[in-house]
């Protein structure tokens, strides 16, 4: 389902990405994979879970796992936490998973030609987490997350 969806998007001239921040790094997630974006949730901690698992939450009757993206992707440094942390809920393997990040950005449209191959390392994270890099008009660089890879080795 999602593979097919990804292909239909790739055929289009433009793609949309939900942008959010960890530190000053802009991360983009294909909007097709995004269920919704939310504010910091009320999380219930799960004992003996891995360190990047914040816990679980109840989203309108559905229980979803909350992953701390900073830890999961191995970002170094501590979060500034100026704003409230955001939560993006994505579809993965038929279930919904919440990804915690520092700050909510916006939704942008990008031509497929603007996307370039990912470098091996972005801000101390592993290169295979990224589908590519998007350069926008304002000299901004957005790293495009490959949700499947990020969540795969969980």
């Amino acid at each position: 389902m999602q593979q097919a969806g990804g292909k239909s998007h790739r055929a289009d001239v433009t793609r949309r990405f939900a942008i959010f921040f960890i530190d000053e790094t802009q991360l983009g997630v294909d909007i097709a994979r995004v269920q919704e974006i939310n504010e910091e949730p009320a999380v219930t901690k799960v004992p003996l879970a891995r360190d990047y698992v914040r816990g679980i939450m109840n989203l309108r009757g559905q229980i979803i796992t909350i992953i701390d993206l900073r830890r999961k992707m191995g970002f170094t440094g501590t979060a500034l936490r100026e704003d409230k942390p955001g939560l993006v809920i994505v579809n993965w393997n038929g279930e919904q998973v919440g990804l915690l990040f520092d700050r909510i950005g916006e939704v942008i449209e990008a031509a497929a030609t603007d996307i370039e191959g990912a470098p091996a390392n972005i801000c101390g994270t592993r290169g295979e987490f990224f589908q590519g890099v998007l350069t926008t008009g304002k000299q901004r660089i957005v790293a495009l997350l490959d949700i499947d890879v990020v969540l795969a080795d969980g």
């Binding site: 949309r16 909007i31 974006i37």
Partner: peptide
């Protein structure tokens, strides 16, 4: 934002 996502979907 969510509305935009919904609209996109």
């Amino acid at each position: 934002l969510n509305a935009t996502i919904e609209a996109a979907r």
